[in-house]
Design a protein around this nucleic acid. Structure first.
Lengths: 246, 246
DNA sequence: TCAAAAGTGTTTGGTTTACACCCATGA
DNA sequence: TCATGGGTGTAAACCAAACACTTTTGA
């Protein structure tokens, strides 16, 4: 299936900061470009008859295999020169016969989205312009294409703010998880350590968790309880907001 | 000066919810369209070489006479049919010889901004497609053109959330103001009453106010103190965020 | 001189923080 | 059996909500 620029709105793009959580680390889904081997956020364009939310969902379905991802727009990036491509790329793109060169030389206003996904359910899949698609630990990402670093940082900042009055985790953790795992997630996003006991008390006070039987498997030391989110209460908390902050 | 559609990015517009505060009421700046006499939010388009923020600032300078207004983007509105114009307008627009009909029949993705301004400094000024421009009390606004009601409501919702961790008022009140006035502003935005004494204690705890001499003028009863914002501390609070919420 | 608005302060209850002890587990 | 991680509890500090009394002002 070839890219046909006539199917898309000119000047408008979208970029997604897709976050996952694995090995106690915050992961970000990135693409490596075919030509320059630079890293980029997954992104795409908006079809003539779809909303930007639909477009973002479509793009992420392609990149991850997962549909209906938790996804929110958070900022529009529109500096006039933000999408000016590297002259080197310009040359290399000419190798491309898809007519993409003309398209990519347009100025783009990009709508930034952040997405939270269950790491284990994602199958990273490169797009037409990419060489590969894979998870990177947030801490190990250094330079990204265009203004994508800025977009990524602003996405994380937005999530940190959301955390103050909304629960998080349902979209980032597997169905069943332990309290220490959930805590680690919060600590990772917030970038600081939390008190184990106070964390538990606070989270439980939101009443969005259901406690299950003890876990038995592998891990050394005392086995922690398993929890799962109570989805109704979780969604209600998402809408109503939480009282205290972190 | 005629509108030349070649100077603007196609498919992209912006709409601004401009809030002011007057007579203890929250005011919104609206335009009344020439043809159908419907009400609309001030809006505009993005020039080929400007950011959306610059564009919004430019548009609001034209509508208010005020430059460098406090202005933030808050959401992108992109439902495919959101900008489909009323067929009646379509006919009437043909009266217009500016070539605007073709332009307005495009699909537009609109970037929503909210703005906070000092009511007394604004000179409402209609644009090319408007009959008049004036302040309306938020409570008295019923129907707006296209999805502008939705945009306006989402703007207010956003401000309410901001209020939880950012100070507000510097952009909405005159230089000098009294504590009851500031409180009324908070109450108006939040849509509920606050305790006078607790409000004062909390606001003062932020240390963003400087207390001045007593006011003497007109108002009956005991004269309240005048305050002004300490702009350095205010800006710092804007960046760092406040601790407690409302 | 009185009603209404505004200045100031105190009590109370909940929430957050800090910290301690015990239990379970696999090496 | 012991080091480590995990479950549970409590005292102190802090903050927010509720409420009372006094002062100033113009009518």
């Amino acid at each position: 299936m070839k890219f046909n620029q006539n199917n898309f709105l000119k000047h408008i793009s979208l970029d997604c900061a897709v976050f996952g959580f694995h090995d106690n680390q915050l992961k970000v889904l990135l693409l490596q470009t075919k030509h320059t081997r630079e890293w980029a956020l997954p992104g795409g364009f908006v079809k003539l008859e779809e909303s930007v939310e639909k477009a973002a969902n479509r793009v992420l379905k392609e990149r991850t295999g997962v549909d209906k991802i938790f996804l929110h727009q958070f900022h529009v990036f529109s500096e006039p020169k933000r999408s000016e491509i590297n002259p080197i790329v310009n040359d290399m793109k000419e190798l491309d016969e898809s007519g993409g060169l003309e398209w990519f030389n347009n100025r783009f206003i990009s709508i930034g989205f952040y997405a939270l996904v269950d790491f284990s359910k994602v199958t990273p899949t490169p797009d037409q312009n990419s060489f590969k698609c894979e998870w990177k630990s947030f801490g190990e990402i250094d330079s990204l294409i265009l203004d994508h670093s800025q977009i990524l940082n602003k996405a994380l900042e937005t999530i940190r703010l959301q955390l103050k009055y909304q629960p998080i985790g349902y979209n980032l953790l597997p169905d069943k998880f332990t309290m220490p795992e959930l805590q680690k997630l919060y600590e990772t996003i917030l970038g600081r350590e939390l008190d184990r006991r106070n964390f538990q008390r606070k989270i439980l006070s939101y009443k969005i968790l259901d406690k299950l039987e003890k876990r038995k498997t592998g891990g050394a030391y005392k086995s922690p309880y398993l929890y799962k989110f109570n989805i109704e209460k979780y969604n209600k908390a998402l809408e109503d907001g939480l009282s205290g902050g972190w």
